[in-house]
Amino acid sequence: MKRLLLSISLLALAVIAFGQAKKPIIMVVPSDQYCISRGYKMEFNNQGLKQVLPDYKTALQTDPDLRLVITKMGQIMADRGFPLKDLEQELKNLEQERAESSMLTSSSSGSEMAESPIDALKRVAKADIIMDLDFEVKRQGPQKYIVFNLKGLDAYTAKQVSGVAGAGNPSTAASPELLLEEAVLSHMDNFNAGLMRHFEDMFANGREVKVQIKVWSNWGQNLESEFGSDGKELSELIEDWFADNCVQGRFSLSDATENFMKFEQVRIPMMRTDDKGRQRAVDSRSFVIDLRKYLNGLGVPSKLYLRGLGEAWLILGEK
């Protein structure tokens, strides 16, 4: 009995010591409505269609209220163990990175760094959970009050994982800055409780990710082609693999043709044991690598394209 208890304790200790799931990156982003309604926008003509996009850089450089709210939220989240990625700093870093990448050359041959158009396109501010923020100081006669709206969005599944909204108490004496601080203090505990529920669900039922299977146009075969000893269609084989490897077999194939399969609400395990017996965190990439290995075994080469912690594409036909 003593030995059993000791083994269980050691196992638990090992999981605690080595088993750390991948921590999502959280970033506060002012909502499109907030930016566009205040004139922080960029307008351009997209093939005859007028397109309006939020201009985050101008918003962060010129709106002191927005900065105040983001700082306050950042302080609270850091206190809860989730330091936020700062959008303003990230935009500056990306600009700097862009400049350095274009100037950097190898000292021996003078070669430039390899960069495909897609690499350049990927150089944008990213987060796994976006705190979509919107607030407004409203007036009612001599009184001012704050309408506050904060949504926690999973960047990959586009699901709202937490959210708070409401109007504060009207006040004649308090400054808008004080009312804004009050709104953040008042709502953040509830917002974090929503996040906590999301994380608890994640640990109980697996991380929810999105996986897309696509086909290169020059492959010559498609997802309806038959593979394996029993001549099953490739789409069927892939679906069976998902059923075998998802937590409790949970996933939904939301759309499919002979050229693509779109898997949503795919529940992948948070941790797994690798070949060396170590506990490793699982993300969409490591999950889809296993699928790629399985398909390689069937004679289907593929290219893995990662869109972040929670979304990956597997393009069949070649690397």
Binding site: Q20, A21, K22, K23, R80, F82, M196, F199, E200
Partner: peptide
């Protein structure tokens, strides 16, 4: 009580 970042 459970920490918000426990498990990560």
């Amino acid at each position: 009580a459970r920490r918000l970042d426990s498990g990560f």
